[in-house]
């Protein structure tokens, strides 16, 4: 008891230092590869392979960024990724929100089975259905279109998003719609005017999760499009690597350009994201 009591009163300052040490170590591990890439992207090609290694470039240059932004397909790939990501987010939400709302508010026979079925489809490994989907896409002559990518992305995100949003809708008290209906609004009206605004954090989190997923996917983007004008950014990056050999300066500049929008979005929405992911994962 006395020994434990002294341990409880372990010097607070030491504990504080330990916490900071852990946090700094974690932060270093997280950004180490990113910083090395950033450093390389500002180096002239001649000094990229110089040893000893320099973290701060001796000669600072924007040439790599110039090459990426003006003499490559990367801006085009970025634009494609933005278009496909945004449409996918819209389609996914349009399909997942009604189902999630129904799951949270209504009971009917077979509901458990239906939800189970939808959730189980997210257990289908992407790689397993790639060949059949490829064949299907060619048959239906939608190969080499944004359309086919959007449909597949949406289908793979919908189960997860239904799960996350269902948790959110359940956390909104049903009395709110009751009150709306008492005031004479329709079910749909009450949903749009009363529930949607309250579910904003959840919908925001769902949107970010879907956006990041599409932005980062390589498998679908590389399988369903061969036209270089339709390439998404992940494939564009990889093509860049193989096309020009390993020109590390330009490659890391391209990587930084593709990361920047994601990092900005992440910094802006980080709180919302943590809330959204936790609601989806902890509610059954």
């Amino acid at each position: 008891m006395t020994a434990d009591a002294t341990r409880v009163k372990r010097p607070a300052r030491l504990r504080q230092a330990g916490i900071y040490a852990g946090l700094v170590a974690g932060a270093v591990f997280a950004v180490f590869p990113l910083l090395w890439g950033l450093s390389t992207s500002f180096k002239p090609e001649a000094t990229v392979l110089a040893t000893p290694v320099r973290w701060i470039p001796e000669h600072f240059t924007f040439d790599n960024y110039h090459a990426v932004l003006f003499d490559s397909q990367i801006p085009r790939n970025l634009l494609n990724s933005v278009i496909v990501s945004i449409i996918t987010v819209a389609v996914t939400l349009l399909i997942a929100v009604p189902a999630a709302y129904s799951a949270a508010r209504y009971r009917f026979r077979g509901k458990g089975g239906l939800l189970f079925f939808i959730l189980m489809t997210s257990m289908v490994p992407g790689i397993a259905v790639l060949v059949p989907l490829y064949y299907l896409a060619v048959k239906l002559s939608v190969y080499d279109t944004f359309f086919v990518m959007i449909v597949i992305y949406a289908a793979w995100q919908v189960p997860t998003i239904i799960w996350i949003l269902r948790g959110f809708f359940e956390s909104i008290p049903a009395d709110i719609e009751e009150a709306g209906r008492v005031d004479g609004t329709t079910t749909f009206g009450a949903f749009v005017r009363l529930i949607l605004p309250l579910a904003k954090p959840g919908i925001g989190a769902a949107a970010i999760i879907t956006f990041v997923y599409v932005w980062n996917d390589y498998l679908i983007a590389s399988t369903f499009v061969s036209d270089s004008d339709l390439r998404l950014i992940s494939v564009g990056l990889y093509t860049y690597l193989t096309q020009y050999g390993t020109v590390w300066g330009q490659l890391t500049a391209a990587v930084m350009v593709t990361l920047l929008p994601m990092i900005i979005a992440f910094v802006l929405f980080e709180r919302r994201l943590v809330a959204g992911l936790s609601a989806g994962a902890s509610k059954g």
């Binding site: 932060a27 950004v31 290694v53 980062n216």
Partner: peptide
Amino acid sequence: VVILLPWVVSQTVAALLWKWLLNGQYGP
């Protein structure tokens, strides 16, 4: 924010960055 940052990095980009970081001749 910093510690959660790798969450937004794609597998392709992670592979490229780490390949460069782990480069046995020129990496840091």
